[in-house]
């Protein structure tokens, strides 16, 4: 039964957005969808990750046009701020509908 369901669901799987399918990147996009903007340190704290790991994944999302990064100074301290772009929000919405389709297909056997 599970194999049958999986076979049906696989019709949807290849079109999954690989850029946000990865856990950390999915988390970054989800956190930014719930906030107007978040700083690098906010995201690091929220995602409970390291500077290096967050930088790598944020850069990939930035290169993909899903998030926008602005660098400024808060007093003397450098501040990196991230925002979700329109493309990023649309990508998350598409990803959510993909997940819902997978579940729906499985339930309807």
């Amino acid at each position: 039964m599970r194999d049958l369901g999986n076979a049906k669901a696989r019709h949807v799987a290849p079109s999954l957005d690989r850029l946000i399918h990865e856990r950390m990147r999915l988390g970054i996009v989800s956190a930014l969808a719930a906030n107007e903007s978040l700083t690098f340190n906010d995201l690091k704290s929220l995602m409970n990750t390291t500077d290096g790991n967050l930088s790598v994944h944020a850069r990939k999302l930035e290169d993909g046009g899903y998030i926008a990064c602005t660098k400024s100074f808060d007093g003397r301290l450098p501040k990196t701020e991230y925002k979700l772009t329109v493309a990023g929000r649309r990508a998350l919405e598409n990803y959510l509908s993909h997940m819902e389709t997978l579940i729906h297909q499985m339930r309807n056997g």
Partner: peptide, 21 residues
């Protein structure tokens, strides 16, 4: 199963958004 992973992903998105809010 794929649908289990899909449900897990949806749960992760919801929890992350709640935590971020």
């Amino acid at each position: 199963a794929l649908h289990e992973r899909a449900m897990d992903n949806l749960k992760y998105i919801r929890e992350t958004m709640e935590r971020a809010t």
